[in-house]
């Protein structure tokens, strides 16, 4: 439900061996929020997301999550080269669950069709992903992550290396999903303008801590 607590960190600490990433961190994320994670490279944004995803272990403290929520995650790096063989639709399909049941298969086809429409990829569905533009690739990653209808979406620097116009298109799309379907969005970025324009709130990573801040507190200095 909108406004309900979905993720809470209590004195969360992460180390890689001796190296401290963040210590005794406290924050809350609520259902339906559009929140950005900002801070310098190497400050632990991706690491936090991986802990949320269960791909990395926390060192200490607690990370509480509403178990009814599923998460779609668009990771920071992807290895799709020019030669990548699958077209956009087949790439998105990879995340479908296997079924031999003809009824379920038909349902899956409807789901694919809808997600391609939602992400404005219908006309591009037969294009090999390797030949797609940066923005089209990001939309395909987004579509794949949204396939199983998650309540939380995590975007790790999805707008990096995109042209301003394309960035805006992608963010407009994510904003639409956030508003229309009440999707909780966690958006990692180095982009001041996008943070100001689209997000409700931010978690600021610095000096081994994570500080929750409001949009008004977000300053350009945080992006240097």
């Amino acid at each position: 439900m909108k406004g309900q607590l979905v993720i809470e960190a209590k004195n969360l600490t992460k180390r890689f061996g001796k190296q401290l990433v963040f210590k005794d961190v406290n924050f809350k994320i609520n259902d339906g929020e559009f929140i950005s994670l900002v801070g310098p490279n190497g400050s632990g944004k991706t690491t936090l997301v991986k802990i949320i995803m269960g791909m990395e272990k926390k060192t200490d403290g607690e990370l509480l999550m509403d178990k009814s929520q599923t998460v779609g995650y668009v990771p920071q790096f992807r290895n799709v080269d020019l030669d990548y063989p699958l077209d956009i639709e087949s790439f998105v399909r990879l995340n479908l669950k296997f079924t031999m049941n003809p009824k379920k298969r038909a349902e899956n086809n409807v789901i694919i069709k809808q997600i391609l429409e939602k992400t404005r990829l219908t006309h591009l569905r037969k294009r090999p992903l390797g030949l797609a533009s940066g923005g089209e690739k990001q939309k395909a990653y987004l579509a794949q992550a949204l396939l199983n209808d998650p309540q939380i979406l995590i975007l790790d620097e999805s707008t990096a290396s995109l042209d301003v116009e394309v960035k805006m298109q992608l963010m407009d799309l994510v904003q639409e999903l956030n508003q229309k379907y009440n999707l909780t969005v966690i958006f990692i970025t180095h982009d001041y303008d996008l943070t100001k324009k689209y997000t409700h709130r931010a978690l600021f990573f610095e000096n081994n801590t994570i500080k929750p801040i409001s949009v008004d507190e977000i300053s350009e200095a945080m992006f240097e």
């Binding site: 995803m53 269960g54 791909m55 990771p75 790096f77 992807r78 290895n79 790439f91 990879l94 995340n95």
Partner: peptide, 13 residues
């Protein structure tokens, strides 16, 4: 999934 998109497959758990 893993063969055509290893990172995506890991991210999907």
């Amino acid at each position: 999934f893993d063969s055509f998109d290893h990172i995506g497959a890991r991210s999907a758990g």
